[in-house]
Every structure is written in structure tokens, then in C-alpha cells.
Design a protein around this nucleic acid. Structure first.
Lengths: 257, 257
DNA sequence: ACCCTATGCCGGTCTAGACCGGAAGTCGAC
DNA sequence: GTCGACTTCCGGTCTAGACCGGCATAGGGT
């Protein structure tokens, strides 16, 4: 089999991706530390140029599945250091944590933007903004009070489309073609006031994570700005951090498998 | 000038990096949204093959400095969405936050590992481990109680080399050739007991970030495991999250500059 | 036994082409 | 005037080579 998609084959994509897929499977089925075939061998096996194989291997390396050592080869890199931080909606986040997401107490309004909010959203003060508040639950128990704001001009009729429990991001993508692409998040510790404590089912004065989040679309425009409160006794902020890999071609080191 | 390093030139590196550097400078001096020269034009200008230019441009795209649109070109992508999360030592972290790092109350011992700790460090229960505790300061004020553990077998004489204020990571790299490459971090909220509150100069019972961290070297072995406390009133956990970009060649979208 | 060099494999980098499909501008036909 | 068809430029992908320096190992020479 020659891997020659594009001529008669299905829609998979380029040979790059086919090879990447094959290698990924191989790697996931291997023990950490074992070497994968050399690039030249793979090129011959798949009947493609070495550059193509390299592109596929680059991809695996970027995913952290393998580790390359110049002059020696490439080795399976298990720990599988959970993939780098990825943007997740509340629902996705909870599912990943093994809980069932939900929502209640939906509350949404349209109001003129304060100077602060206008600045954060990149609009003029006084422009209409949506203010959406929900109590998010995990396994039926309150987990967070989610408060978010969006410029009303960009999403006409949003509040009509939206229902409790809906994923905001999914709705933005489906109805307005807006893909949230990245977000800046800052967690601080806040003391719950009486109202929020009641919403979360905890004691007033309990400590909570206050998450301030700014989400942007592909072109860097702010889509959403909000400040949510997560129960300190139920939530954990996890992150996987790696060395600066601005250019993966820098700072290698020998080390053995 | 032909950019032909490797023959007579200085040690910079490959043409790839030279071009990347030149482009980076250009991009940083440009307004967001403007197009950079086409790959073919750059290849001719620098007298290199287009594949070489592409490698440089790939690099810029990975850094988030530009955005490529198939069939149209590549555009400067300012917001400069602060680079993704990067592993930083306490000192680097504080400097980045505009404060002056310091340390006091250095305390270090060698003791046999508990079953829990042995599991975390990947050694046998009872093996010697270092337990290092420091109060870290920012601008002279206590910021965190840092507690960390390392397998003693891997770093003979560590406590003799180390002095208050030294960067542990720098020391590991310089003395033992061990590069910390990645870390898993989990933040929870903890209530400070009397002793820790005194160390941090806050009231007992105040809320703090409890950071549990596991650091690994390039080959995935655990280097360090620790649990530190950060003052809730002074510390902010920031993260920049992006969409899943397992393969940047997927899910593009038109959009205009 | 020991060191040292020759050889061959490996990844890293680069070249000079090629074809594809998307996007955009031009221009003539309707 | 409007709307297709054509041309041109662009990034995306791929090829079939090439040379470099690191690295491991098998042999030889000492």
C-alpha cells in the first residue's frame, strides 16, 4: 500500500497525518524508552520522502509522545505528561474531573457597560452588554457561580437562544460562528459573601477561588469577560507546565533511554 | 549577504534561526494585522529554499506571533497572548511579577521517606530524602512557605552546596546536570495553621494557596515533590490557555485581517 | 587488556524543484 | 452593470536528493 491519498483514497488528509497516526498508534502501544524506527527506515517503509516522515515525527515530538536524541534516534516518552493546558468549558472541565456537570438559577440581563467592563471587552462605555449568571453544579452539588459578560452588539438575540445548561461556547460557535480560541485566567482567593455562599451551599466567609477570565477569538478580539467563584473545598486548579520551548530546536541534552 | 553560516560565520546556528530572528524583529515592529512578505519572496530575499523559510515561519506561528491563512498570507498577530505557561522557579516567577525575590529561614534535613513520599518520588519507602523548607519573600515580605523533597541518592551532598536564596533548579543543573523539564501543579485552598501563619506574617486561619508540585526531568523521572503555601492575599495564579492544538494543521478558519 | 580510529547509522539541516486548492483581481461576455 | 472564466499569487504538501556533526561499535594496533 502506497499511502497515496488525494488520488483515489478517502478524505483523511495528507500522508503526513497518515504516518503520524500510524506512529502514534505504535508509540502508544510501546513501552517508554524503546526506540521507534529511524526516519530513513520509515520513509522507505511508507514510500515517502524523509521530509514527510520528519514532519510527522515533529508532530509527535510536539505532542510530547516521543523524545529525540540527535545522532541516536527517537524514543517513546510515556509519562504522557497530560497534554498542556487546554481551554475547556465548565462542562468539559467537570467531565474531565469525572463529575456530571449541570446548571441552575439562570439569570441574564442586558445593561450598559461600565467603564471597566467596556475596557475589558474592547467596546465603548455605555454600549449594551449581556450579563449572564449561572450556578454551575457538579454531580448535582453547586460548584461555582459563573458570571460572564459579552458585548451585545456582537451576539444579537443571544439571550433568546440560550438555555440553562447550554454550553456558552458551543452556542457562540453554532449561532454566531465565533470560536473562542484562547483565554487568560487569573485565580485569586476570595471570601464568599452571604448571597454567594447561599448559592454555593457553603458557609458565609468560606474561602473560594475567584476566577477572572478573558476569552478571545481567533483574531484576538475579546469575546467574553467574567469573574466566577469556585468552591474552595471542591475545586482544584491543575496545571501542567513545561520548560520554555519557544523553539524546540534549542537546548537539547543527551541522556539515555 | 547569503546567510551562509556554518562555513565561515559566527556560531549563531542555522539559516532557519537567522531568518526566524529577522522575521521576529520585523513582526514585533509591525502593527497587528499587517501581512508579512510571502514565503516565496522571503526565500528569494534571503537566498534560501522555501522549505527553510517555511520552517522559520512555522516557528513564528508556533510562538503565536503570526497567523497564517491558506491562500492569502501570514499576518501579524499581536495581542502577544503572553506565551503559554512556562515552568518558572520562585525567583523567576517573582521577577516576572515585578518583585524582588528572597528567602529566609532555611531549614533542611535528611530523613527516611514515608510510603507516600516514596511513591511520589519513585523510590523505596525508607530511602533517604531531603526535606527542604524555606520562607520565600517578595520585596522583603513573606510570600510563601516552600517545602520540597528530593531523593537523597540522586543528589549527594546537596545540602552542603545549597545556601538560602539559591535557586534549587539552578543548583541541580549546575551540580548534578539535572534539568527540570516539566511539572504538574495543583492549587487548592488551605487554611494557615498558627506556625505557617507566623512564618508568613498573616493571621492564623487566613486562606492560602496550597501548591502541590511534582517536577520531572527530561526523561520523565521525578526530581522533586513538594507542597508549598502561598499567601492568598498576595498571590495570583495566572494561566493562559489555548484551544487544543495537538496539530496546528487542523481546524483553520478564514477570517480577515 | 587498552586505547584509538574507521565506519556506518542517526537526527539536523538545507536545496531546488513540483503540484494542489483557495483567494483575489482582471476582463470579457451577457 | 453584473457575473462568470481566467490568471496570478498564496500557503500546504511532497519529493529526492545532499552534507553535517554526534554517536556507537567493531577492529586494529600497542
Amino acid at each position: 500500500m502506497t499511502l497515496d491519498a488525494r488520488t483515489q483514497d478517502a478524505p483523511p488528509g495528507g500522508k503526513r497525518d497518515l504516518i503520524r497516526g500510524a506512529l502514534e498508534e505504535l508509540v502508544r502501544a510501546s513501552e517508554p524508552g524503546v526506540a521507534i524506527p529511524s526516519e530513513r527506515a520509515l520513509a522507505e517503509q511508507f514510500k515517502v520522502a524523509r521530509m514527510t516522515v520528519r514532519a510527522a515525527v515533529d508532530s509527535l515530538e510536539a505532542m510530547g509522545l516521543i523524545r529525540r536524541v540527535p545522532g541516536r534516534g527517537a524514543y517513546v516518552q510515556h509519562p504522557m505528561l497530560a497534554q498542556p493546558e487546554v481551554l475547556r468549558s465548565f462542562s468539559q472541565d467537570m467531565i474531565l474531573r469525572g463529575m456530571v456537570p449541570g446548571a441552575r438559577e439562570f439569570h441574564a440581563t442586558v445593561e450598559p457597560a461600565s467603564a471597566y467592563l467596556a475596557d475589558k471587552l474592547g467596546i465603548a462605555a455605555g454600549d449594551d452588554v449581556y450579563a449572564i449568571e449561572r450556578v454551575r453544579t457538579a454531580d448535582g452539588e453547586p460548584m461555582a457561580v459563573e458570571r460572564t459578560n459579552l458585548a451585545a452588539a456582537g451576539f444579537p438575540g443571544l439571550l433568546d437562544h440560550m438555555r440553562v445548561g447550554d454550553s456558552l461556547y458551543d452556542l457562540l460557535a453554532a449561532q454566531y460562528g465565533v470560536q473562542v480560541d484562547s483565554a487568560e485566567q487569573a485565580f485569586t482567593i476570595a471570601e464568599l459573601d452571604e448571597a454567594d455562599a447561599r448559592r454555593l451551599g457553603t458557609a458565609p466567609g468560606a474561602a473560594a477561588f475567584a476566577l477572572t477570565q478573558t476569552s478571545r477569538d481567533l483574531s484576538g478580539h475579546v469575546v467574553e469577560f467574567g469573574r466566577s467563584l469556585y468552591r474552595g473545598d471542591r475545586y482544584v486548579v491543575r496545571m501542567q507546565v513545561g520548560k520554555d520551548r519557544t523553539d524546540s530546536r534549542l537546548s537539547r541534552q543527551p541522556a539515555e533511554p
